[in-house]
Amino acid sequence: MESSAATPTRPPHQPAASPSPSPSSLRLWRSAALRNVRNQWSHLHAATEQWLAAAADGRSHASLLVNAHISHRDMPGTDLGVLKDMPGIRDKASSKLALREEQYGDMLLSCYKNMVRALCRLVKASRSMRCFSKVSPNGSVAQFSERQDDLNDLGDGGGAPVFKWFSILEFESLAQELVEMFVSDLKLKRLLVLELLSISFKEGAEHQTSLDWGDELYDGESDELQSIGLQSGETCPLPENWCAYISGSQRPASHPSHEVLQVYLTAWLANVNIKKSRIDAIFELVEEEMKIKLS
């Protein structure tokens, strides 16, 4: 195995390795650590699959939402042929299309919620790889936990390899690389969900208003985003040059054109911030190190 592929760099926010433990302590730590690392990478793999599946379903629902919206928007001028003289046919068709818009919007929002929750699982697993010595009354039995009791114990076995090559810091670095990809793409997905859910509000119904960036898209969204270091409100998780566009006062009042809506769908489908080949490479690298198959 080449060193360039097997030695991830340590993120700046991570502390240096703790002092090397004694050989007997290291053996006990490694036994507990390898079980924990396997479990956390299994969680990472499952959460990644959950996120990608939710994103795929979301794209399908977004496409159905856009098609229903365009048909609903164009209904007043649609040629109904031999049906045009049927009493109330246009209004009935318009009402059904509006209902479909609402249903597809709800389904899209459900997919976005699943993506947020998958990302929460990713972040939790990425932060749970360390294995700390547990202080217990019975000192004859070594115990370990995810909680740090001893400030001198960083839970990394002094930087020793857990399996053959990778230390805890290196496993954390690979996991953080995954997390950063999905965080970045979730920011874009949230913007697209906001825009797609808002197109129905732009029909001009007096009792409705357009969604703003600071609004929760579903109950509890803010708490879930805050748990992974993001917020849906004042702390905007998007690049600054996007923030002006999505603020309620500067977003265009007119309907997005058919071409713009297709761009939204294409951006969703592309998962532009997700490098699937790199994700596959990371899991292959970890599987090779641990000698197990995660899928």
Rank of each mutant, 00 (worst) to 15 (best):
K202M: 04
V162F: 08
Q14D: 06
I279T: 15
S295E: 14
I168G: 01
D153L: 05
I228R: 03
S133L: 07
Y264S: 05
F171D: 03
P8V: 13
V66Y: 00
C243T: 15
R117G: 03
E102A: 06
S247I: 01
S25R: 12
A125Q: 08
P252Y: 03
P137G: 12
I199C: 01
A68R: 01
S249M: 04
R190H: 02
I292W: 13
E234Y: 08
Y218S: 00
L269E: 13
L192T: 03
T9Q: 11
H45V: 10
E234G: 01
I282W: 02
N67S: 14
I89P: 02
G157P: 00
G158D: 10
E49K: 15
S140I: 03
F132C: 09
D219T: 09
L83I: 08
T7V: 14
E216H: 01
P239G: 06
S71A: 13
N152I: 12
R251G: 03
I246G: 02
L196V: 04
P19I: 04
A175S: 12
R59K: 11
L188V: 15
E170V: 12
M181G: 10
W268I: 07
N271Y: 11
E287V: 15
V272T: 15
S95F: 06
E216K: 02
S232C: 12
L261Q: 02
R117P: 00
W242P: 04
L178V: 13
E289M: 09
L211F: 12
S277V: 14
